[in-house]
Design a binder for these strands. Sequence first.
RNA 1: GGAGAGAUAGCAAAGUGGUUAAAUGCACCUGACUGUAAAUCAGGCGGCUUAUGCCUUCGGAGGUUCGAAUCCUCCUCUCUCCA
Length: 396
Amino acid sequence: MKSIEEQLAIIKRGVVELISEDELAAKLKEGRPLRVKWGADPSAPDIHFGHSVILHKLRQFQDLGHRVIFVIGDFTARIGDPSGQSKTRKQLTPEEVEQNAQTYKEQVFKVLDKNATEVAYNHNWLSKLNMNEIFELLSKYTVSRMLERDDFMNRFEKERPISIHEFLYPLVQGYDSVEVKADVEVGGTDQKFNMLVGRELQRDYKGKSQVTLVMPQVVITMPLLEGTDGVQKMSKSLGNYIGVTEPPSEIYGKIMSISDTLMRRYYELLTEVPLGEVKAMHPKQAKQRLARTLVARFYSDQAAAAAEAEFESVFKEGKLPQEIELISLPKKEMNIVDLLAETKLAASRTDARRLIRQGGVSVNEQIVKDDKLSVNLSGERLIKVGKRKFLRIRHG
RNA sequence: GGAGAGAUAGCAAAGUGGUUAAAUGCACCUGACUGUAAAUCAGGCGGCUUAUGCCUUCGGAGGUUCGAAUCCUCCUCUCUCCA
């Protein structure tokens, strides 16, 4: 096992806050595997690189010999976490939650070590609480303290709605920490408040029931990763995300299209590569290495190499991708506008005309200038829209 | 329970009877330049047709008017203040 100092150095990379370092050091000194909690709200079935910042941190803990307690908030998902939300999140049905939780598990183990992970569903204990216990839990916090919280405050000031039940979320999540006897909890900065509540509840519940914690959990907040636009946080709804299940070529391409500034950020939060090394490299080389590293993590070295070769060929040398989807259409001859709309290469017929007018459409490498062009489909035709949409079409 | 404010396109935000398919910014799309980077420039950004129009949009439903996002009524939702 590595020394305390070495462990701390690894753990501290990229974190925003570590509350507190002394406590963490003390826990590490005990020499036992720590129980590192990560709570996930199964409302978004697709894990993206933003989540993987935290997963990566958890993996580091595992590599240091600690255990991850993956708490699936199947119960809390039905409440809806207010964190960072500008409006009330919709509540999910039990079926949706279950399905999402499964997907979550599959994806999480692309990063986490399955053997060092415990999976827990919080309905197992939350659904058993009786009214007395719920009131006991509620009595441990006050409305004004709840309102101190940034995101509630923001919503309050922006005159956005806050539902009462959302107040329950931090308490319930904090209670999870009591139940799973967490030594450490890792989450996004948006989770700081919830995690701190966990600390306090662990203290409050100490001695009660079977809980015997020496020290309440250490809280580690990780930054919210900026999305591919480099400004807003990565999220599915903003469309600026890279999903861990996306094909290698997509991941590679998306990484290559991020800005240089963002690249350094991704290096820091998603890899172990020393940042000095990155600085010394040519930006494009560095970005390619990042793209390779990340594709390799979710797929394989071969997949990464293939994605890189393809990328170079298509975008540097202007060649065609290795694999282009081939579809068959019933007609032998079609107007280009109909064709684009039919194949969804353009959002609408108007959009198709627009793209043609702007010189963004080509058939067999010939730029289409006339939107009345009739495309003969007796042979295979290659349609290209913009720089990255390719499709082979034939009659059949 | 009482008084008031507000709901406009992906988001933010103008517009208070016609010249508004609806300013502006962001996001997004296409082209140029590149390292498919950033920055910049040009264009676009409801739909259907074409270059002439037509149709559908401003929380929902009705109404007034030659004509409404703009006025009236009701409904839904949100917020503020008072209790």
